[in-house]
Design a protein around this nucleic acid. Structure first.
Lengths: 332, 332
DNA sequence: CTGAAAGCGCTTACAG
DNA sequence: CTGAAAGCGCTTACAG
C-alpha cells in the first residue's frame, strides 16, 4: 500500500500538502491539489485511517451499541436508518454487539468502541442500561445518545412516544367495542419497559374498564406461552395488545394452531410495524415506530448538541396502522 | 484517557514492558506483570487500538462486507454466526454495508474496511460480486473468503450446497405426488444465482416431468406479483418452490388474500429456514441452511489457510424441513 | 500557500 | 527478562 510519502514524492510536494489536500481543511493552490490528486490516483493511495486517527484525534466514526440479536428486525431497522444518516453527515458507524442484554455486556461493547476512538456513542437499549453505559464512560467521554429507550432525566435521547403508542393501540380496540382487553408485556427485564403498558392502562382507565396486564416473554417463539397465559388469566378476553409485533405474530400463529379465529374470536394488536407485519395472515394491526425520524434526531443530538445539548430528549409520536387482526368483538 | 506512559510510570517499568504484558507475546516476570496490571487497572488504562494497529501492523480485526439490507434475516443470521465465531478466535468483526447490490458499492465497502487495516475480508454476496471484490484488492491483500455464494474457481468459499437443496425441496414435492411444480426465482441479478434452480431442474428431469421456471423478484413484498405470474404461466400448478423463504412467506399471504388454500390447492416450499418460517400460517416447508457451519468454515478458510488455502471451497449439505405448507396435490 | 519538525500511542528489533 | 530507540503513517502548530 502506498503511503503519504509516496504520493508526496510523486507529486513533488511535502507530505503536509498531501495531507491538506486529503483533509480538505487547509489552503492549497489548485495546481498543487491537482498534482497530488493525480499522483494519489495513479498510485491507488488511500489514507491509513489508523494513522489519521492517531495523529489527528478525529476518526469520523461513531459507535453503535446494540443487542446481539441482530435478527430482531426492529434493531436492524434502527441500525439501517442510523447508518444511512451517519453517512450523509460524513460519519462511519461502527457496530458493537452486546453479547447479552445485561449491562456488563453493553459496557464491554461500549469500551471496544471507545478503544477505536469513536467520536460519539449511540446506545440502543433500555434506559437503565443506557444510564449504566453513560456512567461507565471514561474521564473525557465522547458525546452519547440513547435511542429508543424510555425518557428519563440526564441522558440525551431520541425515541418514540411509547406511552402514546400504547394509548392509541388500546383506544383503537376500545373504539371497536372491546372491553376485555389484555396487555401482554415483558417480564423480568430490569427495569420493565413501562411506556407501552402505561398507555394501555391510561386508555383502560379512561374508558372505565378493568385492565389486565400479563407478564410474558415477547419473542416470536413465545406466542404459545403468551396465549396460554391469556386463556388462563383472562379467559373472556376479546382482544389483546402485545408489547411488540414479534410476540403478536407468534400469537397469531398460536391462535391458528388452536383454531381460534383472529380477529373473529380474539383481536390482536402489536407495536413496531415490522416489514413482516403487513404480510401475516391476518395482517397485523400495529403501532408504527418512526424509525427514520428517530435516527435523524439521534444524529442531531450527537453531533449538533454543542455544549448545552447533553440533556435534550426528543420524543416522536407514533402512528396507528389498522389492519386485519383487529375487528369488533365476538357477538357484537 | 491514560496512555501506556502513565501505566509505565505508575508501575515503575518501561513502556516496552507494559506493551509486552498487554500483548502477551513476550517474556515478562510475574512480578512485573502484576505491577503493570495493577497500575493499568487503577488508571483504567486500555490500549489505543489505532496506535496498536499503526505500530504493530496487526489489528485483530476482520472485515465483513454485506448488502445494506440488514433487515434481510438471512444476512443477519450469517453475520451473527460470523461474529460469534470470530470472537471465539480473538477477532473483532467490522461491518461494511454495501449501499446497493452493484459491484461498485461492494468494492467501496471493501475499501473502507481495508482503510481500517483489517486482517481478512469476508464477502457475503453472489459469486460475481465476490470475484470483483477480489480483483479490486490492492497489491498486498489480506486473505479473503466468500460466504454463501455459488462455487466458482479461484475464490475461497464457504457455502451451502444450493443445488442439492433445490433438489431436495423438489424431490419432496414430487414424492408427495406433485407433477406440476413451478420454480419461482430471481430475475435480473447478474449473474442469476442458479444453484437452487439447477437442483429443481435436475429433480424434475429425473422424474420426467416438465419444468417451469418463473422469473420474479424474491422479497417478502413480492408474493402477490409472483402468484400472478404462477397463475398466468402455470395455471394448473399444484406446487411451487420459491427461491427463498421471504418470497414463500409473501406468497402464503397472497394465497390467503385470494382464498387459495395452502397446501390444499397449492403447496409452497421455500429455502433458508428463517426464524419466522416455523411460525407462519401455515408453517413453511423449507430447506435449512446450516448457517453456523458455514460461519465456522469461513473463519477457517480465512485464518487457517496458510499459503495453500487460497482456492479451497467448502460446500455444506442442507436439510429439508417439512412443515405444513406442503401436502399431497389436490384431488389425490 | 507551503515545508520542516514534532508528536499521536503504541510495537518491535536491538542490545544488554 | 528488560530498557532505550526507532518507527508505524499521518496531522498540526510553527515559521516563512
Amino acid at each position: 500500500m502506498p503511503t503519504i510519502y509516496d504520493v508526496a514524492e510523486a507529486a513533488g510536494v511535502s507530505i503536509a500538502t498531501v495531507s491538506r489536500v486529503f483533509s480538505g481543511r487547509a489552503p492549497v493552490t489548485d495546481a498543487s491539489r491537482e498534482r497530488v490528486l493525480a499522483a494519489a490516483d495513479a498510485l491507488g493511495y488511500r489514507p491509513n485511517r489508523m494513522a489519521q486517527a492517531l495523529a489527528g484525534g478525529r476518526t469520523k466514526a461513531l459507535g453503535l451499541v446494540m443487542p446481539f440479536t441482530l435478527s430482531n428486525p426492529f434493531y436492524t431497522r434502527i441500525a439501517e436508518a442510523l447508518i444511512a444518516h451517519g453517512r450523509q453527515r460524513g460519519f462511519e458507524i461502527l457496530f458493537a454487539l452486546a453479547e447479552r442484554t445485561d449491562p456488563d455486556s453493553y459496557i464491554d461493547a461500549q469500551k471496544s468502541l471507545l478503544d477505536r476512538q469513536v467520536q460519539g456513542l449511540l446506545i440502543v437499549s433500555n434506559t437503565e442500561t443506557a444510564h449504566l453505559c453513560r456512567e461507565a464512560l471514561p474521564g473525557d467521554p465522547p458525546p452519547m445518545a440513547a435511542v429508543g429507550c424510555l425518557p428519563e432525566r440526564g441522558l440525551p435521547l431520541a425515541t418514540v412516544d411509547e406511552e402514546d403508542g400504547g394509548y392509541r393501540a388500546t383506544r383503537h380496540l376500545i373504539e371497536l367495542g372491546h372491553r376485555r382487553i389484555a396487555f401482554l408485556g415483558l417480564a423480568g427485564m430490569p427495569p420493565r419497559p413501562l411506556g407501552r403498558e402505561h398507555g394501555y392502562l391510561r386508555a383502560m382507565e379512561e374508558a372505565q374498564v378493568e385492565a389486565h396486564a400479563i407478564d410474558t416473554p415477547v419473542r416470536l417463539q413465545d406466542g404459545e406461552q403468551a396465549l396460554d397465559a391469556v386463556l388462563r388469566q383472562v379467559p373472556d378476553a376479546t382482544a389483546v395488545f402485545a408489547q411488540n409485533d414479534a410476540l403478536a405474530i407468534g400469537l397469531l400463529r398460536a391462535l391458528a394452531e388452536r383454531g381460534i379465529r383472529a380477529p373473529g374470536e380474539l383481536s390482536v394488536a402489536g407495536f413496531d410495524d415490522l416489514p413482516m407485519s403487513a404480510l401475516t395472515v391476518p395482517s397485523l394491526t400495529t403501532v408504527r415506530v418512526p424509525v427514520d425520524a428517530i435516527a435523524v434526531e439521534a444524529m442531531r443530538l450527537l453531533l449538533d448538541s454543542g455544549d448545552n445539548g447533553c440533556d435534550r430528549q426528543v420524543v416522536i409520536g407514533p402512528e396507528l396502522v389498522a389492519r386485519e387482526s383487529t375487528g369488533p368483538p365476538r357477538g357484537s
